Simulated scan of single mutants.
Amino acid sequence: MTEERRNFNEQIVAEFRANRGVVGGPFAGRDLLLLTTVGAKSGQARITPLVYTRDGDRLVIAASYGGAPKNPGWYHNLLAAPKVTVEVGEDKFEATATVVEDRAERDRLYAGMVAHAPGFADYEKKTDRLIPIVVLDR
């Protein structure tokens, strides 16, 4: 992750925590959560702000990385250690992250992401990889 991206994420995390989960800028009006993973190489806690949707009791996130050709670091971290911490508003809880393997379910959940935040359609067009969908269960 670049220094610029790290600084951006740190500002979003601080704003999220100061305002009970409400942030402005590019995330204004979006459902945002903070995902804490354990670094697969470093073993250090890594906090990432992510747009999410709901599917019943599950929270749904996409490893879009803005349409980059590779998956984001947080995705590799949760593959190595699927027990994560999630913050939604003022609620903080432990969850299990599961990559959605069924293509039809993945496509349905990704369509929900696009409906909530249309930029996800652009991310899909920018990359040749299939953007993974991850569900978070308490």
Rank of each mutant, 00 (worst) to 15 (best):
T85L: 10
A18S: 12
P118F: 12
F8L: 13
D31V: 09
P72S: 00
T2W: 10
V84I: 08
V23A: 02
W74E: 01
V100Q: 04
A18I: 12
A111P: 07
V22Y: 05
A63R: 05
T37P: 00
R5T: 15
K83E: 15
T2Y: 04
R6M: 09
D55I: 08
A62H: 00
E4Y: 09
K92W: 02
T2H: 14
N19K: 07
R108D: 08
I61W: 01
A18M: 05
L34C: 08
V88W: 01
R46A: 12
E94Y: 06
A68F: 08
G43W: 12
A63G: 12
T85C: 10
R46M: 09
E101H: 10
R5E: 14
E94Q: 14
R30K: 14
V88K: 04
H76M: 13
V114M: 07
H76W: 11
L78R: 06
F93K: 06
A115T: 11
I12P: 06
R138Q: 11
P49L: 04
R58Q: 14
L32D: 06
V22A: 13
R106M: 10
N7H: 13
V134Q: 01
I47K: 02
T96F: 03
Y75I: 04
G21K: 12
A18R: 12
A81N: 15
V100Y: 04
V135F: 01
T85Q: 15
V13A: 05
R5F: 13
R129I: 09
V135W: 03
R46H: 13
F8M: 12
T127Q: 02
E87R: 11
V86M: 02
R6V: 11
L78K: 02
L59F: 05
V60P: 04
V86L: 00
Y110G: 03
R54D: 12
D57Q: 15
L59G: 02
F27I: 10
L34G: 09
I131T: 00
K125V: 10
R46E: 10
L130W: 01
H116N: 07
G66W: 03
Y65S: 01
P72N: 01
T37L: 04
V22E: 15
T53P: 00
E15Q: 13
E15M: 04
L79Q: 15
V114L: 09
N77H: 08
E3I: 14
E105F: 02
T36H: 12
R20M: 00
V134I: 13
N7M: 11
N19F: 06
G89M: 08
A80Q: 09
G66L: 05
E124N: 11
P26D: 15
S64Y: 05
D128Q: 14
V100M: 05
K125N: 07
P118D: 07
R20L: 10
V88I: 12
N71T: 11
I61V: 15
R17W: 10
L59V: 08
N19M: 03
A40P: 00
P49F: 05
D31F: 08
P26V: 15
S42D: 11
G66Y: 07
V60L: 01
A111N: 10
